[in-house]
């Protein structure tokens, strides 16, 4: 798996256009408490979202959740959430796991990757800025790409 190089964290207040193209790298531990605001930025950031999409396949999330429609795990592209769709809830689902068969990815994903996944998971049901969400698909998913979805599906 590709190693993501460490770079200093940019200031959190950004112009929206800049934010979309900007690349966030690993969060230094001292700033981990900024994870939430960082997440907010991720949802407006094309790079973070496309990283999330790549990780979704690499870490076999897609094996259980398919391209969001579900399978061994529940659908993630719909408006039904067992454990909530706040960023923190999704983060907890990924890192701590859930009792009915969602494995814990703590120790497999770093913080940064986890938040990119959170942003991507939310974009599946339309909770990301449309001009930042992935618009292309290298999978065979024939439906609307993530940037064409809105929260009401």
């Amino acid at each position: 798996m590709r190693k993501i190089t460490l770079a200093p964290l940019f200031g959190l207040v950004m112009l929206a256009g800049c934010e979309r193209e900007q690349r966030q790298f690993e969060i230094p531990p001292a700033q981990a408490q900024f994870a939430k605001p960082l997440h907010a930025a991720n949802e407006r950031n094309a790079y973070a979202l496309s990283q999330g999409k790549t990780l979704f396949k690499w870490f076999n999330c897609a094996g259980c959740h398919s391209n969001g429609g579900g399978g061994m795990g529940p659908a993630l592209m719909d408006d039904h959430w067992r454990y909530g769709n706040n960023a923190e809830d999704i983060y907890a689902s990924i890192m701590e796991g859930r009792p009915n068969g969602m494995p814990s990815f703590r120790g497999k994903l770093n913080e940064d990757q986890a938040w990119q996944l959170v942003a991507y998971v939310r974009s599946m049901s339309g909770w990301a800025r449309q001009d930042a969400a992935p618009g292309r698909d290298d999978s065979m998913y024939p439906g609307k790409p993530e940037n064409m979805r809105d929260q009401r599906n």
Partner: peptide
């Protein structure tokens, strides 16, 4: 039949290993 028993989102044809 996972599309019914597993409440799959039918927009994703690749769901349930492509059976959907």
């Amino acid at each position: 039949g996972t599309i019914v028993s597993g409440e799959i989102d039918a927009r994703d044809g690749s769901a349930a290993l492509g059976f959907v």
